[in-house]
Amino acid sequence: METFLEFIIILLITGAVVGFSTGLLGVGGGFLMVPIQFFLLQSTGISPDMAIRIAFGTSLAVILPTAISGSYRHYCNKCVLLKPAIYMGITGFSGGFIGGYIASITPANILTFIFSILLFFVAYQILKYQKVPGGKTKNLNPYHLLFWGFLAGVCSGLLGIGGGVILVPVMLILLGFSMLEAVGTSTVVILLTSVGGILSYIYQGLNIPNLPPYSAGYVNLLQFLLLSIFSIPLAYLGSYYAHKIPEKQLRYLFAVILIFIALKLSGLFELIGIPL
């Protein structure tokens, strides 16, 4: 009973942090939900391969309503470029479905390794980014938007993330968006990329034996509920504070969170004896 209570409390706290980070940084929160669910599920005796897929699928399910909450506030504050968001979201949806299929046939150790390398790379790009004085011309070429949307969608489905860890740096560094524009637009794109991934994980997980109770394919409805309770209102709160924090501090915070999770997933903390 005590272990189950701890399970519930950890997921509730995770959902709260995820919601706030979604609104604040324009990321889906999968970078936090995936490893925490992965480790919790393994602690209950579920195999790593099944645990990582449930973590991915359930994370995407939580990302959807959370992103809706955060994107509404960003849209009201005129930080969403709707046309680019639609272009990227269209291909992001199909990319999410394809990524979910790839994840369903890929071993857990490969997926966690890919995830940690991706987070290190994105954090590096964010830290070295230098804003061009006087602004930067936006690149709104539809073909470029479609390409990056598809890539973010594949990563979303493959790794159980909303796609924001790809989209925010791309929009910031390559497409000329401001940090707030990148964050706001990313939350809208996440809506469509996550839908594609969710459908894929549900479909690929149908008729799989020994899934935990309350599972719809690789989406666990109990974990979805616990993670969503606080994530949705706190996404709205996070988007409010995104407009209060200087852009440079937002980027540094984003990078630090990514590096921490990457180190955890790579197993480096365990290797050097740090119990995190």
Rank of each mutant, 00 (worst) to 15 (best):
S47T: 13
I259Y: 04
L271K: 14
F224A: 13
Q204Y: 10
G163W: 01
G196W: 03
C76S: 15
S228F: 07
K264Q: 11
L82T: 12
T185Y: 10
I8S: 07
H144P: 03
P233D: 11
G70P: 04
F150R: 00
L206M: 14
Q204V: 06
L25T: 01
F260R: 08
I272R: 13
L119T: 00
K136G: 05
L146T: 06
T112R: 13
A61G: 06
P35C: 10
G95P: 01
A51W: 00
G163E: 02
Y214V: 07
L192S: 14
P84K: 02
I36M: 07
G184R: 01
I166E: 04
Y240M: 13
L199H: 09
G176A: 12
F113Y: 14
T91A: 06
L127Q: 08
E270T: 15
Y252N: 11
A55E: 04
G196E: 07
Y75V: 09
V189I: 09
L24A: 05
F7Y: 11
T44A: 14
F254Y: 15
V170N: 06
Y241C: 15
A182K: 06
V154N: 07
L81K: 13
P142A: 11
H74S: 04
I202R: 02
G26M: 04
L222A: 15
G15W: 00
L41N: 07
L276G: 10
C76Y: 15
I114C: 13
R73I: 15
L140C: 12
G197W: 01
P84H: 01
P209Q: 03
F230I: 09
A67P: 02
S104K: 08
F269Y: 13
L167A: 03
I10Y: 08
S156T: 09
A85F: 01
P107Y: 09
Y214N: 14
L25F: 05
S186N: 09
K83M: 14
D49P: 14
P213I: 14
L253D: 04
